[in-house]
Design a binder for these strands. Sequence first.
DNA 1: CTATTGATTGAT
DNA 2: TCAATCAATAGG
Length: 191
Amino acid sequence: MENSRLPQTFFRREAPELARELLGCILVRQTPAGITKGLIVETEAYSQEDAASHSYKGETARTAAMFGPAGHAYIYFTYGMHYCFNVVSGGIGHGQGVLIRALEPLEGIELMKQRRHKHDNHELCNGPAKLVQAMGITRADYGKALYKGNLYIEKSSGNAIEIKSGPRIGITKAMDAPWRFWIDGNQHVSR
DNA sequence: CTATTGATTGAT
DNA sequence: TCAATCAATAGG
């Protein structure tokens, strides 16, 4: 039985706000091999006016999903070996999204360990390309809607969390923008 | 700290 | 066609 899946309307807001709202929500992946769930503990916002964003120079074949409707998946391949997962935010044509940087594993942990070839819980989802691997997300999920289908997000449990923010990681431009958000004190944040 | 690895992009 | 860049990770 499925808990409350977030509807498309939830994602229709500006990236920094959505990045905050997604903290404490649960990313869910259903596959024939089993279900995996993780609490979202770290995010980063990217917008079109932002020099560090893939959408900064306008829409390209690679970034098309960022300019599409909110609540869909933008997945990019980088460094010749890693995929990362974003949730598209804002309106159609806006070119923005929220990078999911880290999860706290909740369910399907054995499956995550198999996919990651790791046995330490803290090494399963504490980085953007790591959680993609642990959740079994692939290029085939590019552009897919998260408000339907087998990859989706459940609403926050409502537990009180303290949110911190700071500069984003791994970028070489707009390093002053404090658009990385994380749950204070959570042990699964990437660093 | 370094090596890895190849798609994407914009300039020749 | 070519070269630079890259929202990262694993292993010393």
